[in-house]
């Protein structure tokens, strides 16, 4: 019994993190049509900004004040990044390849910038809440429990924004037909910025969640990014819902595999499953071949 609770809790926790990261990647891909390899370092930067604000070694603000400031800062960085290294290539036939290179370069810049500013020493963020909670005989930290509960709320809010609010509908419209959006007078450039900023804020939040759970380092974003890659390949990039489902499926798969097969061989097994999926259904499990949103 406790094994099952253990696996379920681990699957829900990791799934929440993966979903939060993968949704940002899908949001940028569907609206702008580029893949952001700097998404992982946006996580790192968000976490370090939060540390600067909240840690008792730095400013020492309460985490609930530090969090929104760090998210706004992440969004601003995402917005600037979009304007500097993605926007200039929009409309070129090789935009996908060029954006891969510039975002990889940006990832390298931010990773080493973090190293220069905060140093290589592992650091830890204060958790969102202290203490542990017992669920069916299994102790789980309050921090993890908050993440498990809050993530679906955030994802639902994102879904509501994209399907029920004018601004979100405008984002989906840009994803579907950019020319028509120009015709009806939407500010396409601003919407691109919004998509990137929103994705960066989501990445920053994922970074803060992670930073309160494990140690932070300048390379902390690279492993979650590679998992998010698997998630978006598995779920398809064309929708927002696909990666969310895929995130939880993969997290549960991992939790079960780690328990029964062991920590070391789980990445290989995951990759084997991924290759098999791609050979059978190349566009991802939940994706129709399109770039539409939600």
């Amino acid at each position: 019994m406790s094994t099952i609770v253990d696996i379920v809790m681990s699957g829900l926790f990791q799934g929440s993190l993966y979903a939060m990261i993968a949704v940002g990647l899908a949001l940028v891909w569907t609206t702008i049509g580029v893949f952001n390899f700097a998404h992982g370092v946006l996580m790192t930067v968000g976490a370090y900004i939060a540390w600067q604000l909240a840690s008792s070694d730095a400013l020492g603000l309460p985490i609930f004040i530090a969090l929104p400031i760090a998210l706004l800062a992440s969004a601003a960085i995402g917005l600037l990044m979009q304007a500097a290294i993605v926007r200039p290539f929009i409309g070129r036939p090789d935009v996908v390849l060029l954006a891969v290179i510039t975002t990889l370069a940006a990832a390298s810049i931010f990773e080493n910038g973090t190293l220069l500013i905060w140093g290589p020493r592992p650091m830890q963020l204060p958790p969102l809440a202290a203490g542990t909670v017992k669920i069916m005989g299994i102790g789980i930290s309050a921090h993890q429990l908050i993440i498990i509960l809050v993530t679906p709320v955030i994802l639902a809010a994102l879904w509501f924004f994209l399907t029920r609010m004018r601004l979100g509908l405008a984002l989906r419209a840009v994803a579907q037909n950019e020319d028509a959006c120009h015709l009806v007078g939407l500010n396409v450039a601003a919407l691109y910025g919004l998509a990137f900023g929103l994705a960066a804020a989501l990445a920053g939040l994922a970074g803060i969640f992670l930073g309160g759970f494990t140690f932070m380092s300048p390379t902390m974003g690279s492993e979650p990014l590679s998992k998010a890659l698997v998630v978006v390949i598995f779920g398809g990039l064309g929708t927002i819902a696909g990666p969310i489902f895929a995130a939880y499926i993969i997290a549960f798969f991992e939790a079960i595999s780690i328990y029964f097969i062991g920590f070391y061989w789980t990445p290989a097994l995951l990759f084997a499953v991924l290759i098999l999926t791609l050979m059978l259904k190349p566009e991802g499990l939940f994706s129709r071949r399109s770039r539409s949103l939600a």
Partner: peptide, 27 residues
């Protein structure tokens, strides 16, 4: 796996392959 894939999915699979090799080496 990339025989039937196009564009960004080829990037993702090949990139993920690199990550897998690193993870195997570290583990």
């Amino acid at each position: 796996p990339i025989l039937r894939l196009k564009g960004i999915y080829v990037v993702l699979v090949t990139f993920a392959f690199g990550q897998l090799v690193v993870q195997l080496i570290i583990s």
